[in-house]
Design a protein around this nucleic acid. Structure first.
Lengths: 206, 206, 206, 206
DNA sequence: CATGAATGAGCCTTCATTCAT
DNA sequence: TATGAATGAAGGCTCATTCAT
């Protein structure tokens, strides 16, 4: 097909990404072929190869489009807690984080894909490194925030920032992970996320 | 070919399972072929086909061999808390659960595979249903235990058993998940698991 | 896009041909794509399609540009030996032919491509027929020259012009072929071509 | 299909090689797909992959099967000229070499393929190195033979063994090359090869 | 003139699977 | 029991080609 306008091209790009998202969730990344993605978006494989070099590039693009902004915004905030009200700011951040994951479909799709629909192995593939860079960056931001809180003597004094970071990291990951799981048996997170987080926050902060 | 003894056959079976375990962790399930497994075990594809109908059957067998006993033991205990000391028993169970995952290589390999090296999608494949039956059974056992504790008025009274189950479930899952992750940045679980669990137990139980 | 002047266009044309030449030699014709050519010339595929209908047309154009003049000049001379000194003229022609192939980079590149970097099969493709027309024309010119020499009784009398043509044709081809071969093990042709040719000329002429 | 006897397997192997030979000559190596080969041999692509890792391996196997014996026999003889009659032995060897190429269909097919139906570029592919090892080995054997003849003072004294080796090498290559060319215009080599070789041998030896 | 977007055909390769031995 | 030979389906990827801009 012939050349399109810039808008057409961008539209195609997003259509491909949307199609990929749904297929990844429906059948997993490994079982989804580039042909599937193209067909679902009403195009041919060639179109996918025009926009992305391979399947991993699709996943990367998908992650950056759907989660990039939120990631950067949260890590930046965690690293720059309001000096006037660091505790309140932190509590609000953690809660809005979960709220975002729950209520923003694009974000929750992206998280679901990387949490459930991709295999992670010992191989240090390009994609794995790409995603782990985000993970590590977020973990680091969380650690920075808790270290800051420690300086304000806002943490319980029998556990240091590092251990509490791992604890919160596990808890948040666990909540999101179990929430996004197919056929999840857990309680409705939308309704209970504040209380669930308060359980931890009240236990860890003082 | 010469007949083999029952022991030889069983030995082959375990060799295949061990080979599969390592390969699944090293390269992921999707990228591991039956041929890879056979070769790693020093055999040919035919041997795999003799012992397992397909790759999913390998995973199932692997899970049952490595995690089956622990699963049944824990769920049984959770459903039958010591009436004399239900809280202490529960605390001890949760801790020994994590201790097991950390220190039993077979178990941790199996958990790592199903947590990181397999894709879960909306498809209700046979394997997914098989594994989710274990998951749901465990969740249910945990819920039963917490319900029992509630009857003993051992839970904080602002949150019901269901919500606390989801909370603990998320926490335990999160701890194991982040612990088994490649290149994990979290604190050493071996050293801190008791304190990390106490944080939650002290917050939730009374 | 702004109109280009005739010179610009012609410049583009030569750039494409030069890029193609290098790529054909580096990777062979079959493995070189039109995209490769365009990129090497700092353009996109469209430019190639504007100047050439397809890859075969590139090769034809390349051959005519790099070898066309020499071919026509030599065949013409061979067909019109100086009646005064036919033998001397012939000897000089053969030697200058080899000298040309050795010292003219454009010509040697073209010869190397058609001798080593293209496949010739039983298929009578357009390109093959195009190139064989040159080959046959040269062979015929050589035969004409030797026939002329025969009329002057300048050939050894135990072999006719046809056989000697085949002999010289094989020898010249062999010398050029082995000289242009990658990692050639033969002696330096630049230094020895005159002696090598004299070996044959002294044996065949009298 | 199920397992076959050893003879069946070997038969398949040769059928595939024969099919490949014909197709390489008919359409060139690059244009021949493994699918073509399989189909021509009445099998599926899988069969080809069972016997050969890729197309290059087919070519290597083909060369060794069709030309390996002759190559080893000739190079060995060239390196071990009969001390009693070195010149006569050498002349006979060179002639029987050409005679072989002309009259042994398997050998001439193999030579035609590597001379005309394959592209050679600056890339040092595995296949190219494989084939050049044969070429260099033959060139070296020829050089050894001529060096031996020089020791017997059997060469004309105005040219050394190295130059004469290059000369003969070019001549032989040229004769075979032009003889095996599609639509060759040269005289019938079958009929004239002895005379054509004598032209060179009489000029170079004394 | 030249580009950028997209198509569609086809090739190489890998694999699960089958079956005679 | 286990192997070795072969099938066939499918996936990833590349490319020549087309065409609106």
């Amino acid at each position: 097909m012939a050349r399109k306008t810039k808008e057409d091209t961008e539209h195609t790009y997003h259509q491909l990404l949307d199609a990929a998202t749904l297929l990844f969730i429906e059948h997993g990344v490994a079982k989804t072929t580039l042909n599937d993605i193209a067909q679902r978006a009403g195009m041919t494989r060639g179109a996918v190869y025009w926009h992305f070099t391979n399947k991993d590039a699709v996943i990367k693009a998908l992650w950056e489009r759907n989660a990039g902004t939120a990631h950067h915004s949260f890590t930046h905030s965690l690293r720059n807690l309001d000096p006037q009200h660091p505790i309140a700011h932190f509590r609000q951040l953690i809660k809005s984080l979960l709220h975002n994951v729950i209520s923003d479909p694009k974000l929750s799709q992206a998280m679901r894909i990387i949490m459930h629909c991709i295999e992670f192995s010992d191989e240090k593939t390009d994609l794995q490194q790409f995603l782990y860079r985000f993970r590590d960056d977020f973990y680091d931001a969380l650690h920075t925030a808790l270290t800051t809180l420690a300086q304000y003597h806002a943490l319980r004094d029998d556990m240091n920032a590092a251990v509490l970071t791992s604890s919160l990291w596990a808890y948040i990951n666990g909540l999101i992970h179990t929430h996004l799981e197919p056929d999840s048996k857990t309680v409705d997170l939308q309704q209970h996320y504040a209380a669930l987080l308060d359980l931890w926050l009240n236990a860890a902060l003082r």
